[in-house]
Amino acid sequence: MNISDMTDEMRLIADSAFEFTTGSGGLARARAVRDKWPHFDKETWEQIADLGWLGVAVPEKSQGLGLGVRAVCTLLESVSRKLLPEPLVPALASAAFLADAGAAEARGLLADLMEGRKLVVMCAARASGSFPLRLANVPDCHSGATVLVAQGEGNQFDVRAIVPGGDGCAIRSAACVDGSTLSEIVVQQQEWSRAVRVAAGMQAQQAWEKACDMMLLGDSAYLVGLMDAALQMAIDYMKMRKQFNTPIGAFQALQHRAATAHIDVVASRALVVEACRAFDTPSRARAACAAKARASAAALRVTKECIQFHGAIGFADEHDIGLFLRRAMAVASRQGGEMAQKLRYGAL
């Protein structure tokens, strides 16, 4: 994250993440994979695992890097500048949860995730009601992925690892505007009964809620990097594009609008940083909600403004600036956008 108190480890993570996303194809790859299914490369996912990114938030005693949520947000802000399509946010949160769960089944699944053998994603929405269980709006899921599904409260809290696609667990997916997916998963009772239980009880519920807040922060950091990169692209364009033999960036009206967009980026980043500092305090959930609410609204404002800065070419699919708006629309809505997070904040 572009903050003055970034540690050497965080700078190393940020630099290596940016170099990797640039070297692996950057925006050209993000454009190329958006119409594929799944919308990311298995080979790239294995390279990400080899880099150790999936263990950033996992304690060293569980074979992770143990760098915490600040490092997670630093990583995600960096990779979002090139719109990395791989589902890092739910995978990082899943790894943190599995490490906290501590059960033997969780440790085995964590090892598979960190080594790139399996894609494991959390379904933040808790299953409720009678069977069949219906889980809506599960991001970045496909047949073959392992989905962590939670049900119950307190001592009855139960998390199981479900693999959608079989007779007992149907999955129906729809493409979002950026090429990512949201899925509805229907779990039959027999599938739930034979699924592997990875955690249970009050302690598991606390770990689950903490991981869900990490996903909120991860998406917020991703949005910060995304809108910052979009604004920089727009500023570079305004320095080059001329009207009346003058770069349009010299026009005061556009300068004011760019300054307002920059304030949105900086304010959103500041809330993410504060939420990271509050992550191990009782105000964790409220801070995560505030960060996600601000980042969701700001990312949509900034990316829309950047398209306006580009003029007519900004509306053409051939220009990369539109990729940022599409990605912002998809990520901003995950686990609820601005209004949903404000409502949750008020209820906490």
Rank of each mutant, 00 (worst) to 15 (best):
G346S: 11
M6E: 12
C176D: 08
F315A: 13
A275L: 14
A195Y: 00
A261F: 13
K36Y: 01
G102D: 11
V79N: 05
A258N: 04
I185G: 00
Q252H: 10
A278K: 12
G168C: 05
I171T: 03
A14S: 15
A285W: 03
I171R: 05
C306H: 08
S62E: 14
V79F: 10
Y237F: 14
Q341E: 12
A200W: 06
L92W: 04
A299E: 05
A106G: 06
R269L: 15
A71D: 07
A299T: 03
Q206L: 15
T22G: 12
V120P: 00
R286D: 08
A288Y: 01
L148T: 01
Q47R: 15
D219K: 02
I313C: 10
V89Q: 06
D264T: 04
R327I: 00
A145M: 02
E86C: 04
D280N: 15
H310M: 15
L325N: 13
G154F: 08
A30N: 10
S296G: 09
D228P: 00
G68V: 11
F324V: 02
K210T: 11
A106R: 09
L113E: 09
L113R: 08
D317C: 07
S173M: 12
E115Y: 05
A207M: 06
N137E: 14
A57W: 00
A229T: 01
S4F: 08
D280A: 14
A99Q: 09
F315N: 10
L271K: 14
K61E: 13
G166N: 12
L12G: 05
T260F: 13
W37V: 13
A57Y: 00
T303P: 10
R126A: 13
A298Q: 04
R284N: 11
A136F: 14
R70L: 05
G152F: 13
H142Q: 11
K118N: 06
G25V: 13
C123H: 11
R107M: 09
V121P: 03
P87N: 07
R269C: 13
G322E: 05
S128Q: 13
G23A: 14
S143W: 00
K42S: 15
K342F: 06
D317Y: 02
S78W: 02
A71L: 12
D167T: 06
A295N: 07
S130I: 07
M1T: 12
A287Y: 03
L226R: 04
S78N: 09
G168P: 05
V273N: 05
I321H: 05
H310F: 15
A17I: 07
A103V: 02
G336S: 09
G116V: 05
L67E: 03
T181Q: 11
V186H: 01
R277G: 15
A270H: 09
G116E: 10
P38A: 11
W53Q: 06
F97H: 07
G129P: 09
D317T: 08
M339L: 15
I171P: 02
G314A: 08
G179L: 12
A230D: 08
R294A: 14
G337N: 05
R31H: 13
C306A: 11
H319L: 10
G66Y: 05
I321D: 04
L54Y: 11
A111G: 08
D236N: 14
F40A: 13
